[in-house]
Design a protein around this nucleic acid. Sequence first.
DNA 1: GGTATTCGTGCTCATATGAGCAACGAGATG
DNA 2: CATCTCGTTGCTCATATGAGCACGAATACC
Lengths: 314, 314
Amino acid sequence: MDEVDELLSIRAAELYYEENKTQDEIGQALRLTRWKVGRLLAQAKQRGFIRIEILHPRARRLPIERRLRDERGLADAIVVSSAGVTTAEELQARTAQAAADYLTALRPVPRTLGVSWGRTLFDLSQHLRNGWATGVNVVQINGGVSLNRRPGTAAATAVGIAQKGGGSATLLPSPAILERLATKQAIESDRVVAGVIDLARSADAYLFSAGAADHTSVHVESGYLAASEVDLLVEKGAVGDVVGRYIDSDGNIVDPALDARTVGLTLDELRAAPLSIAVISGPAKHPVADAVVRSRLCTVLVTDEATALHLLDG
Amino acid sequence: MDEVDELLSIRAAELYYEENKTQDEIGQALRLTRWKVGRLLAQAKQRGFIRIEILHPRARRLPIERRLRDERGLADAIVVSSAGVTTAEELQARTAQAAADYLTALRPVPRTLGVSWGRTLFDLSQHLRNGWATGVNVVQINGGVSLNRRPGTAAATAVGIAQKGGGSATLLPSPAILERLATKQAIESDRVVAGVIDLARSADAYLFSAGAADHTSVHVESGYLAASEVDLLVEKGAVGDVVGRYIDSDGNIVDPALDARTVGLTLDELRAAPLSIAVISGPAKHPVADAVVRSRLCTVLVTDEATALHLLDG
DNA sequence: GGTATTCGTGCTCATATGAGCAACGAGATG
DNA sequence: CATCTCGTTGCTCATATGAGCACGAATACC
């Protein structure tokens, strides 16, 4: 295709897409046959001169979703468009909304749903519609009594998802991380706690997010970890946490001693699940998202466009 | 249109524009008739959810061009797309290229073309192709011996346009602005200078740009005006200059005494021309562009998308 | 210099899409 | 409660578009 044709294809595209002319009319205007016009338009598209965007908070990027499924072996992928997004909150809200939509449309409806907690999942619980399901029981899969500010978001997340789904929530009455291994073992051997964890193991599906390994982490905010401890984990290769457990870029536990003091489902139990939905968005979480997908911690990923492209490029 | 339909129209748009499905296939996927799908897509478009952009340095914005013609009474308007533009130079280059294209396609070809000078027109002269016309004579319409750096761009502009158009250039051998009125009158009564100005008055078409009233002005750069003098003009309401003459937002001369010392075509002579092409781009020139169009200094405007929208909004 | 090959062109035909219309149903109105 | 009105739906038909094909010109190759 020579330069003249390139210019003509642009002129044709202007008349076609901006002026809504038919290819025949364009042909008359540019002194071309309508077949030539059709070919010019096809070339303009094929060469990437035409960009079509869907501007809507609920818009998804289906081609990227397919690439994620095909190239990264996911059972399903939901990628929200970031076109027109200005703030990080907006991106988070879009992703949470998409995850809520996915849950709502999920068939068969899980009878028991294991959930983690955190900002993203709380947001998700807020975006769910009342009656999104009829009779879904929710069980927490990792410890989560918030120590500092915003107490109860962990509980509110599980309870919210359950109530709106016409079911009830089973909370895991334990801190996320304990200071001493003996305490953790004692708690896990408690009848109630052990019962909840057993129930969590039997869930039909899991829903969780991931945290970045930095000072904004909910673990720091909630007081389970000091900022300096996170720095140490990063030095050991941590890229973020999943259900409270810090992993490196290969999805391996970074600090086994710390992990042993963490209450809840293990990562291998999560990996064994037939349906585990990860909801991860934002540039800060690109490394964790990568680790989660590579190490097959989830079968379904809900994320944003930029994160998805990061996963595909790397 | 209720919320459900809005969501459906987005789903339909995804399948239509990103997955290249037919409306019939989309109907099957979403359990709708193909007519419903067509209507949903039409609504998505009409509500502005679908954005189609043409990404190319030569792309123009025809709907904006039409609005400029219709709403601002221009004989013609060329608006280059600023999609994907990152630097000011790029925008300038696109606009200059579009003006060069316009000149090349102009029919009837002007026998004599009056030109101004400046960065924009120099850029334009560089973008013209050899042989863009056969036998166009170019005449300078305002004084333009550069005093400081980049000497000769004024001459190079006129000569370049003429040579590439198979004609010759007639230069106006005079400074743009003289220090004393008497000197200006003396120069204008010189046989050669008077002849050039007469020729300029008889040109078939004029091509000029406009300068912003700030310290980046070519007049400051060329040494005709001190930065402080420009500040003074701004205080008196100047928004920029056209062929060396400073105007306010209504297109009136800001400083008649200064204007009397400026050599070249007057603004009223320019306004009387049947074809005068202004090439103006960049955010800094929004106010001058407005003044030029409002006061009918040009019949044809070549500009960028943002400037055009500024003219239409205000 | 003749022949083969490739590419672009204009066509036919099948398909996708949009305009316009009649029938239907939900809600308003007497 | 009957009727009216308006908006929605599924349709028919006209039009716009894309796929595939045969031809001819330009280029490569023997």
